[in-house]
Nucleic acid binder design. Structure first.
Length: 209
DNA sequence: TGCCAGGCCCTCTTTAGGGCCTT
């Protein structure tokens, strides 16, 4: 069964283009709906964490001082997910930091795998949810707690549980056998009303291939 | 709890603006 990597970054801020850096990464590997592997590490990028972010994430400057260099951690993370499609909540954020941190290693953005996004998918599948924050969606679906919110592994675990729920609901709601990663990437760009047609087109193309 | 950005999405829109989501 195809493995999917669910990724979450903690960072010093919102924008790598403005100099923000990753402070922690976690990757939870799903095989079907089962978690089969995990990767987690703090990383030291040599930048100072603001008091607001220390409070928000619980990751302090003292913790980062003892952490391995960011380049070393990112190289290990890249090896860990090699060939796996990736998923994140509000994936455009994690995708930017993934690309920016790997670019510092000399790894080209052309190697960037397509990310599926549990926030975009949730907006389409759960119009009644109200809020699409990770914590709100976890409460909406009564997902099991995974530890302190805004730490990378806890958030990656919750995102993985949300992803499993999304794939299960797609299978049930649209009466299909599977909801593979490339279907998710297509659906997250489809208008909500066009989901049935997009799913039909996806499986028609698979059958005709 | 805020600011910084970027992308999505809705509407009192489309020659635009503002809220949401990520840290």
């Amino acid at each position: 069964m195809k493995r999917i990597g669910v990724i979450d970054f903690e960072t010093t801020g919102l924008s790598p283009a403005q100099g923000d850096r990753a402070t922690e990464i976690a990757i939870v590997v799903l095989e079907g709906s089962q978690v089969v592997d995990r990767f987690q590490s703090l990383m030291n990028a040599g930048v100072r964490i603001s008091p607001f972010i220390e409070d928000y994430t619980g990751i302090s400057n003292d913790m980062i001082r003892c952490a391995p260099p960011a380049g070393q951690v990112m190289a290990e993370a890249a090896r860990f997910v090699q060939g796996m499609p990736l998923v994140a909540h509000n994936a455009s954020f994690d995708q930017r930091f993934w690309a920016a941190e790997l670019a510092r290693l000399g790894t080209g953005a052309s190697e960037l795998p397509p990310f599926a996004c549990t926030m975009l998918l949730s907006r389409r599948l759960y119009p009644q949810a109200g809020s699409y924050r990770l914590g709100s969606l976890a409460a909406f679906h009564a997902l099991p707690p995974a530890g302190r919110a805004h730490r990378a592994l806890a958030d990656a675990e919750v995102t993985a549980a949300l992803l499993s729920r999304i794939r299960s609901d797609i299978r049930a709601q649209f009466d299909v056998q599977e909801a593979p990663h490339d279907l998710l990437v297509k659906l997250q760009r489809s208008p909500r009303k066009a989901l049935p047609k997009a799913i039909q087109a996806y499986f028609d193309a698979l059958r005709d291939a």
